[in-house]
Design a protein around this nucleic acid. Structure first.
Lengths: 304, 304
DNA sequence: GTGACTCTGGAAGTAGTATTCAGGAATGAG
DNA sequence: CTCATTCCTGAATACTACTTCCAGAGTCAC
């Protein structure tokens, strides 16, 4: 049996009897028929009896129409997903695009940014950074503007598992912290372009102070990368319509997540707790009655 | 009805009765059950009657088990296709996973979060929010903890195209701002769980002051959603290994991007400028020689 | 405690699917 | 050309799976 039902049907066509072939052709022409219609209706549409349709399904190697139908539903959905992807591959946002188009295109570019960042990732470098952080005393994070949010995100995450981490939107405070680094510390500079003066400068100060330096950037040849012992590269392709900033930020955050989970994993942290929380919240919620109802929120620490 | 059956089931969980919830949990844990088993067998596996399973399907908005089953088959297959692209057999992180596996799995979950958020997005609501912001005077953003970063991100973006936007990590300042809202203003509360007291409270204050309210949350039935005129839902699946926070944040940011681009588009903003800038900066840089060389970066506003 | 309500699973009813079987067309041999 | 064999086909039947209805159990508010 071939992996895809529809190509299996196409291949089987020559071997089929005329009635079964008619069924196969109808299905190949519009697989949705199978998903939408019962075997009885499909038989009518194909101008044949339901026995023939049932036999056709068995000829293809399925136990019957039910199983065949599920298989077609899967194949149709999978094909649709791939077609969507393909259709979006080379399309930039147009000022006249509909909301659906805009959303699909942005999503596609962000997904692509994540995928390409994964592809281009050097896991040896990643684990090098992980080791430095786990073995180090403190982590300093430098990032300004949009990259500042990535820096803050990593700071929040590290702090949450008990790793001393500092991050400030104020360059002066960042510089002060950078100047105080020791060789056991790790300093991470985040800049999409790799050109941001503040980040480069601060990371340079931390390096001069003796810290292990890490750069997270889209340009591995940029000044900030030059200063770094480890360079983690994002691969967000710039695109029109301000998409660059979006994809690059998503890629940065993905990188931060890789780093974080790897660190947690390396330290053997118990990381299942949040799931537990969700369950409990849901439970409490349900006790209050069928509908979520009340204006007042249940107490919950602002993890978000 | 949500686009993806499985996230719909997850979302519906809190509203379900205990027997129906048991069914939902079983399905969420292993969607393949639905594809493989008849309604009778599934009922037995869930320790309930087939009537309950049938009712559950109808609660989710399907005509019955048959339709539900087809939908699940589609969703499962789509997800499997995605997983294959990342070369993954299973998607849960194991403490013993290699760096490559961990990275692929996180990326998979984040990509899924973006795609499912797109699938489940109501573009009418999106454009409703866009109109409110474009037609309004000012935007207030409330988000704390991890969601605070999303709020800041949107604030930065809006400010950059000249829309008055406020966001503070300090609840007190947020409350003060909320109390000062006018009917022409828009207040956006961001909370993954929808339960965060600070966010709910602040958004409520803004609503009482007359502002148009928007919620960005993963739980459309949550308190924060109850307060909102417009609810934008993310569809990040919670998973083990603290993955929830990652996927949900990525999904939130994707939503923010949809909103932002749509606003820019609606206002007819010239949005190719940032790309232009990047090019120029790169050019200047390149003139100095192919390698970035000097410690000192070229001047560049801290956009990032 | 009583009444109103919701939840639940058993059972009846119905729709949909599998299988059997007999008629009929096609093919090939005599 | 005729007959026999084979294969194909759809009607009818048998069966499975699904849906709907209903009554009892449990829960909550008054």
């Amino acid at each position: 049996m071939t992996a895809n039902v529809l190509s299996a049907a196409r291949e089987a066509l020559p071997r089929l009897s005329s009635s079964e072939a008619r069924v196969a052709e109808a299905i190949i022409a519009d697989p949705h028929l199978v998903v939408d219609l019962t075997i009885t209706d499909l038989a009518r549409v194909c101008g044949t009896s339901l026995s023939t349709v049932a036999r056709f399904c068995q000829t293809l190697g399925y136990s019957g129409y039910r199983e065949f139908r599920m298989e077609v539903a899967s194949a149709v959905s999978r094909e649709a997903a791939e077609r969507e992807r393909f259709g979006l591959a080379n399309s930039d946002i147009d000022p006249l695009d509909s909301a659906e188009d805009v959303v699909a295109k942005i999503a596609f570019h962000e997904v692509l940014a994540i995928e390409q960042t994964v592809e281009g990732l050097d896991t040896a470098v990643l684990d090098g950074v992980v080791e430095a952080i786990v073995g180090g005393a403190h982590v300093d994070l430098y990032g300004f503007g949009a990259s500042g949010l990535t820096a803050q995100d990593l700071q929040q995450k590290l702090a949450r598992i008990g790793i001393s981490a500092f991050c400030s939107v104020d360059v002066h405070l960042a510089l002060v912290s950078a100047a105080l680094r020791k060789p056991s510390d790790v300093a991470i500079g985040i800049s999409h372009s790799g050109l941001t003066t503040e980040t480069t400068h601060t990371l340079g100060v931390a390096r001069d102070a003796g810290a292990t330096t890490v750069a997270i950037t889209n340009s591995p040849d940029s000044p900030v990368a030059e200063l770094a012992d480890f360079v983690l590269t994002t691969h967000a392709r710039e695109s029109s319509y301000r998409m660059g900033a979006m994809s690059s930020r998503i890629a940065q955050l993905a990188l931060v997540d890789f780093l974080f989970v790897r660190i947690a994993q390396r330290r053997g942290d118990d990381v299942t707790e949040p799931l537990q929380r969700t369950f409990e919240v849901t439970k409490t919620h349900r006790i209050n009655g069928r509908r979520a109802g009340d204006r007042r929120a249940n107490g919950d620490a602002p993890r978000e």
